[in-house]
């Protein structure tokens, strides 16, 4: 016994017949293995990015210096400034941010509704509609985008070869390509990028919720809508957060849909397009300055591209760190399951 009356660790260990020590050692071994594993895999993922980071801090001279591998000899913020310049500064960031948030919210809300409908209600033709959702998951965006573009350039309902209601009334269809709100409508209609996946995720989530929750709500006088809104939605927050996250990230790096909906002439306004055109942009610029036929050295264009990639990654990581909190917080609010 120690002075304050508590039994020491070894005392307790002796009383438990050595169980406590074995348990403690096992715990430490487990922790050690976990740390090694996590660290190793983190390094695997981070290594290419760390390399990008280190070359984004070098002067151009260091790129050709064989003795410089990871730590630059001459620090410089010049690559960052150059990449920032060719990414067209802050405007594409804000454009992408604004559109991404709206698109994310619309997609998550509509897909949550639809997922709940599929999970809980029985209605005629349910399997047919769900088959359509699966079709939407399987068919990649690249396949759909050309016919979609053709349709949206002269949109109408039903719209087969320029025949439809609008053509009957006004003689021409709506031009929806290059319009921001058109993409919002498409997203609200669960027809945006990867909407099928979000519907499926939400459906699986709601199917796994106990039915007693809703029954209790009905008994207490909720109708179908308030049951959904007040009882089931709070519990779905982690799932919704990850849907939002995916939606945002896929929008941020999307080069397919943004070309259809956000192209104004030859100007791409989103950050993904700015990044995609970064090297070309710089090449043209340098050619203008240095004279015809000048080619930017590969190492240099790689440097600027890496820097640009890092710059576009930062907002996503910030958003992830913010969003992952809601993975953790939600339990305390809805821990009634089971």
């Amino acid at each position: 016994m120690t002075k304050d009356g508590r039994i020491s660790f070894w005392e307790r260990n002796r009383k438990s017949g050595g169980y406590l020590l074995r348990k403690r050692i096992g715990e430490y071994i487990f922790r050690f293995c976990r740390a090694v594993l996590l660290f190793g895999l983190c390094f695997l993922i981070l290594q290419p990015l760390l390399h990008k980071f280190s070359i984004s801090m070098m002067t151009e001279k260091d790129l050709y210096d064989k003795t410089v591998i990871n730590i630059p000899r001459h620090f410089s913020t010049e690559p960052i400034k150059t990449a920032w310049h060719y990414l067209h500064g802050i405007t594409p960031f804000f454009t992408s941010l604004r559109i991404g948030i709206v698109v994310g919210i619309l997609q998550v809300l509509s897909c949550t509704l639809v997922g709940y409908g599929f999970a809980r209600y029985k209605f005629p033709l349910k399997n047919f509609w769900f088959g359509c959702v699966i079709l939407l998951i399987v068919v990649p965006a690249q396949t759909l985008i050309t016919p979609l573009q053709l349709l949206l350039a002269d949109w109408d309902f039903p719209g087969i070869r320029g025949v439809g209601i609008l053509h009957l009334i006004t003689g021409h269809g709506l031009k929806l390509t290059g319009k921001e709100f058109a993409y919002y409508v498409v997203c609200a209609g669960c027809a945006g990028y990867k909407s099928g996946l979000y519907i499926y995720m939400m459906r699986q989530h709601f199917r796994n919720e106990p039915k007693e929750l809703e029954e209790a709500a009905y008994v207490d006088g909720c109708n179908r809508w308030t049951t959904f809104w007040k009882i089931l939605l709070p519990g779905a927050r982690p799932m919704m957060a990850s849907c939002f996250l995916f939606s945002f990230v896929w929008w941020w790096t999307d080069g397919v849909y943004s070309r259809v909906f956000f192209a104004k002439g030859n100007n791409w306004v989103t950050i993904a397009n700015a990044l995609n055109g970064l090297v070309e942009n710089m090449g043209h610029d340098m050619e203008r300055i240095m004279g015809r036929g000048y080619i930017v050295p590969a190492a240099r264009s790689n440097q600027i591209l890496s820097t640009g990639t890092l710059l576009t990654l930062i907002p996503l990581i910030v958003i992830y760190v913010l969003a992952q909190k809601s993975f953790v917080e939600s339990i305390s609010q809805s821990g009634i399951k089971g």
Binding site: G117, F118, Y121, W129, L150, P158, G189, A191
Partner: peptide, 27 residues
């Protein structure tokens, strides 16, 4: 329930019929 179910999946039906049916069928 059937009506409520259709109300819930209505966004999908609208979006699918208006924007995706034609591209899928034409492909």
């Amino acid at each position: 329930n059937a009506i409520a179910g259709y109300m819930f999946i209505l966004p999908f039906i609208i979006g699918f019929v208006l924007f995706l049916l034609i591209p899928l069928v034409s492909s």
